[in-house]
Structure formats: C-alpha cells, structure tokens
Design a binder for these strands. Structure first.
Lengths: 236, 236
DNA sequence: CAGATGTTTCGAACGGTGTTCGTTGACGAA
DNA sequence: TTCGTCAACGAACACCGTTCGAAACATCTG
C-alpha cells in the first residue's frame, strides 16, 4: 500500500526543444505558408503549431488570438502590393484601376487572404501604406477630402469582396470545368424560373452568367467605381 | 454479484415526442429567431436543434447541411424587402438608392443575415425576386443589358459587405459609446503614424473616421455606385 | 388484421475548432 | 548559487458540423 506497483515516476523528460525559439515572425511565416498552400481553412492554431513542431498553447505567448493572426497575415500580404508613389493627376483614373488590379493580384496570389481580411479594417503598418498610396491617387484626382477618405474604405471593400467570392469557390478545389458547369447550371436555373414573375431574369440569364471566368466582371466594377468617383471630383 | 444494487431498469421510455413533427419551416423559424436574438454565431446545428427540443442529427433529414440552412435564412430575410414593382424611368436613380437602403434596413433588422449571405449568390425564390426588381429599376434607367446584369451582382455585394462590417462590430455587443471609443482610438492611431511616410492619412484622419456612426458612409457608397452606373446608361 | 417496407427521429460518437490552466524548464539578475 | 520571471507546452474545456445505427412511427401489401 505504501507504494503502488507501477508509479510512472517522471516521464523521461522531454529534453526541452533544441530548436530555435518561437517568434511572431516564425508563426506568421508558417501560417502564411499554410494559407497559400492549403487555403484559409487550413490555418488553424493547431495546424500552425504543428507546422512549427509545437502545441497550440505555445502560440498564445506571441499572438493574442486567431483574429490577430489573421490581421498579421493580411498585413504580410499587403507588403507585396506595388503601388505608385507619385501619382499623375492626368492619369489618376487609370492609376486607380491599376491599383485595384494590383490588390486583386496579390489577393489571388495568396488565396485565403481575402477571407482573413473581410469585415475588418486592416490596420497594420504595411496595409496603412497601401491606404496612403490610394489616398494620393484620389487626391491627384481632385476629390474632396471627405470623398477621398470614404473612397479609401470603399475601394478595398470591393476588391476584397470579389476576391472572397473567388476564394469560396476555390476552396472547394474547383477546376475550370467545375466553374463552367456551375455557371451553366446557374444559367439554366435562371431560365427555368416562372416567366410571368421573372421576365427580366430570364431575358438576361445569359448576361448575368457571363464573364464569370475572366476578369470582365471585376473590370466592370472598376469602371463603375472610378466613374462614380470621378463625378465627385471638383472641377479644376 | 448477480445483480447490482441500483440497476436503472428501462430508462422510462422517452415516450416519443408528443410534439408536432419537424419540418423545414419549423427549423428555419427557430434558426431565424436565434439569428435575430443572438447573432450569427448562435446559429449552430446544435443550438437550433436544442431550441426545437431535439438533437442535431434530426435536422439533417430536412436540411442538407449548415450552408443550406444559411441560404434558407437569407431567403427568409429577402422576403421582408419591399421593392417597387413598376419603376419610374424618370426617378430610377433615386429608386435604386431607396432599394439599397431597403436592403440594408432588412439586413440590420436581422443581424447576422449579412454574415450568412456573404460570399454566396442567393438563389432562393424570394431573393431572386429582389434581383428581378432591381433589374427592372436598372432597365428603367436605360442601362445596357450587360451592365444591368453585372450591376445586379455588384449592388448586393456592396450592401452585404457594409452590413457585414456592422455585424462584426455588433456581434461583440458594442454599445454606441464603445463604437465612439473605437473610432476615437482609430483616429488617434492614424494621427500618430510617422508624418514623413503617412502625410495624407494624418491629414485626413478626421475625415476617414467621420460618419461611422450614422449612414453617411453608406450613402456615399450609394452616390458613387449610382453615379457610376448612370454614366453607363445609353442616352435616350 | 399481420407483416413488410420505408422514412423520421435522435443518442452517441468522430474529428475538428479556439482558448485557458497549470506545470515545467531555461535563462538572466542578484 | 539562488531566485524570479517568463516562454513553452501537455492536457483539458466547451464548442462545432456531420455521420452512424438503432429504434419508433407511418404506410402500403397480402
């Protein structure tokens, strides 16, 4: 009774990790790799920790929570965006469109970033630098201060939303044919609606499902936004 | 040994539920109530089932999965949107703005719907009817078919994104003062950035954080979008 | 009326999630 | 050398969506 038969005693001592110490940067690196290679859903505290050869609890010494990690990922991606430093007042509309194309390009290159970015203002320093650059373009276009300030919120909202939609489809691992099949199904669904109540939807079924593959849809949004903003510019 | 002391005997027989049978509608009802009262995160298969006095597995006989339930919630909300049936060509821009205001109103009345709607085309019949109505307004404005077709995608995208942003804040149970405090913090963060690299952000810090409380920000988006769309209308 | 067949219900479980607790160990200051 | 501090981390908590399989019920067949 004084001693039980198998007493585990100390479990051999885990030898402490011989690896280099954890840092915020190493965590973001690992998370970014997971994000790009396997999409947003693969970025869990557990999987990131596992990729670093440790447990999830270890991450919380360097990152407040999952949301903060998401923000860090967004900021890391913003770093890759190349935006003009000295905008040209004569070409501001085209420059604005280019900037939005660049934002979409980066989000596509890092699938899942849109998912992490949606619904929260990116406040990291690198993201703020993008904001500054966009503001410069808008000021070059002679937009009133208030309009420029709100537009700089509206613009990423659009790009992020578009990229997010693509991400949702991409997350399911859809191939080009899958997308085509989905669009075709969508179109025939539109056309199958009751004609008395959905005349326009049926008539425009083709147009509504057009441009889903390429960038025409996105370009349309660019056109609408820049035209709308241009209409607010104070005449010089 | 032959009999243990407390033998539970038969567990009283669960008497089979004396309640009315489960239906898709009852499930959506319960989910909607949870959504409105406690936000999107409260809408889990488990909680919906619990609200109906059953287990989560029971729901799967009527609803394919969580995503389908989300779609059903969006469609249920779309039902509440009152949009004009016979748009007036002379007032189409104002009618379009009103329609978007109505969409936002409904999304606000059902907090969490935006979260359920984001990133997926709403295909339910009631949602499609809203699409039809918006199309009618756009056609009244003499937009080319392709423009109208893409715009009818762009418009809910904007409204949903705005509502979603509000939802994220609201989900944390923020009061009016909380929002004010957050905005004030944001503003002083902008102003504290290095002046050499962020001159515009600092100069416009006030403007960028303005209009977060009311609807001015949303109205700005309406103005930009309608103006941009109007610029695409074919002259009559 | 009895039996077979199909559908609905639902407890239990699987494998995942974000996060917290409390112990362990390493390292710098005294 | 001792002490105090703090990163590391195993284990656990409370959830999540979904599936399985066995009952309970409804309905049609003989």
């Amino acid at each position: 009774m004084t001693q039980s038969p198998w007493q585990p005693i100390t479990p051999a001592k885990p030898a402490r990790s011989p690896k280099e110490p954890l840092t915020r940067d190493r965590i973001v690196d690992a998370a970014m790799r997971l994000l790009v290679e396997q999409g947003y859903d693969a970025v869990s505290m557990r999987k990131v920790a596992q990729a670093l050869g440790t447990g999830p609890a270890s991450l919380y010494a360097h990152v407040a929570n999952k949301k903060e990690l998401d923000q860090l990922l967004v900021d890391r991606a913003a770093q890759d965006m190349k935006l003009p430093e000295n905008p040209d007042p004569d070409r501001w509309q085209e420059q604005l469109k280019d900037a939005m194309r660049e934002m979409l390009r980066v989000m596509r290159a890092n699938p899942g970033v849109a998912r992490a970015a949606i619904g929260q203002v990116p406040l990291g320093e690198r993201a703020m630098l993008s904001t500054e650059r966009i503001l410069a373009i808008l000021k070059a276009g002679n937009l009133p201060d208030q309009a420029a300030a709100w537009a700089v919120d509206l613009i990423p909202l659009y790009v992020t939303a578009v990229s997010f939609e693509e991400t949702v489809q991409g997350a399911a691992g859809w191939s080009k044919e899958d997308v085509e099949r989905f669009v075709a199904g969508l179109r025939s669904y539109f056309e199958s609606l009751p004609p008395d109540r959905f005349p326009l939807t049926i008539a425009l079924a083709g147009a509504m499902t057009a441009g889903s593959a390429g960038d025409e849809r996105f370009e349309f949004g660019l056109t609408v936004l820049t035209a709308g903003l241009a209409s607010l510019a104070t005449p010089t």
